[in-house]
Design a protein around this nucleic acid. Sequence first.
DNA 1: AACCAGGCGCATA
DNA 2: TATGCGCATGGT
Length: 277
Amino acid sequence: MKVKQFCDSILIENPKVFSLPLCLDCGQAFRWEQNNGIWHGVVKNKVLNAKEVDGGVLFYTTLEDYNSIWHDYFDLARDYEKTLVDFKEDEKLKQAINEFCGIRILNQDPWEALCSFIISQNNNIPRIKGIIKRLCETFGEPLGEEDFAFPSPQTIAKLSLDDLAPLRAGFRNKYILDAAQKVATGEVDIYGLKNMSIETARSELIKIKGVGEKVAECTLLYGCGHINAFPKDVWVKRIMQEMYQDGLPKCTDGVKGIAQQYLFHWRRNSKLFENEK
DNA sequence: AACCAGGCGCATA
DNA sequence: TATGCGCATGGT
């Protein structure tokens, strides 16, 4: 991945597998917004503006922040080109990749991923985004302008159900509180999950009320670097039933999370399935 | 106006 | 182990 530094920005030169809209609006992160081609978002206490230009992807940031945050966040050290070549042995994955090449798995903050996917349960994406936006605006640290950090587990842990009511998250409020409390006390070592086996990390996460198999897998995949985690929501279950009755093909071994994201996005957005809505 | 949404906890068998 | 139901809210 070649990088060029300018006075106010960093250019990722002609990446083969990196699309901002696909990465930032494929249902893995909920806080990015696009205006006039500029993608705007907040990660850890840093704001980023980025856009696609002739010659690559431009990040308006310093080399220092690129190296310490954005390179990792966008998973730029991983060779997706090679993985996708392997995936194309499978006819269905090949179609998904041909239509939506450019998705990468984001390395989000584990607490934000946990909290976001607790909110996601039995919910739809537009409403998930709204709840998370209100959560950040109400309880997150202001970062100037219109930006807010994602509120820390310590901050949420001090709140009551009544405090959370304005989020309009419904029955999920009690789950958000339980998660914040278990993380804040250290009962669940959220920042340690990255270095645990995926099995151990799963068993840690499901100690939290409102965290079952699906939310745990999402947290592991999007927040803990466990690239083989495989969340099965209604769309992925649909695909598995329709196309993979005998399980995923061997070419996805070790990186099932990437396969999951391509299949999920394909099944939801491809014209091939539009008659099924 | 129903049906559904990136599910989960709980009761029951 | 395996179903089935209720849950808060609002998008489509």
